[in-house]
């Protein structure tokens, strides 16, 4: 089914459409959230909340403002970041692992029986540090171009072109 159609059915509260979208994006959101909170139970809980929230806020999505994936990605990142700021979370997780998503992928055993996993493991092990940082900030953490440029002490334009190069490499590796 066309994505547009799927999304508009979802906005009309079609539960089947919602399930399809869930199957398309939940794993991805789960990864993004886990990379921020670094706790499998908490990540799972937030991921479920994110989709429940998306269901209730379905009206607020508009294709004009961006991709559906990007919309739900924003909800996921914000929910995860909110969690890390909560008092409860701070008390239990004093030291958040400072590794990148890369380290999680490399040690992720549940990946071994997935088709794309080999490509991705290969990709991240070869990935230049600069790519790791840019992808981490822009996609996993939701930094703006400006914030990323300040954090990495790089001109804004460089962030854009470097990111393009890194994503192109990833696509080569995954054949998309």
């Amino acid at each position: 089914m066309q994505l547009e159609l799927l999304v508009s059915k979802f906005q009309e509260k079609d539960e089947k459409a919602f399930e399809t979208l869930y199957n398309m994006y939940s794993e991805s959101m789960h990864g993004v959230i886990f990379n921020i909170v670094r706790d499998p139970d908490i990540a799972q809980e937030i991921m479920q909340d994110v989709f429940i929230k998306a269901w209730h806020k379905a009206d607020s999505y508009s294709a004009k403002k961006g991709r559906f994936f990007t919309w739900i990605l924003n909800i996921a990142r914000n929910a995860a970041i909110d969690k890390t700021r909560s008092k409860n979370f701070k008390n239990t997780k004093q030291n958040l692992n400072s590794d990148f998503f890369v380290d999680i992928i490399e040690s992720n055993e549940s990946l071994d029986d997935q088709t794309d996993a080999i490509g991705i493991k290969k990709f991240v092990s070869k990935l230049a540090d600069k790519c790791k940082q840019v992808i981490e900030l822009l996609y996993f953490k939701g930094y703006t171009q400006k914030e990323a440029s300040e954090t990495l002490e790089m001109p804004i334009g460089t962030i854009k072109t470097r990111n393009r190069k890194c994503i192109s490499e990833l696509r080569n590796m995954l054949d998309v």
Partner: peptide, 21 residues
Amino acid sequence: IEAAIIKLTAAVSPRDSKLFY
């Protein structure tokens, strides 16, 4: 681009999300 990002981020997921639907 979206497909590549989805695969990359999904690889970070610690559990199979489909089980929780």
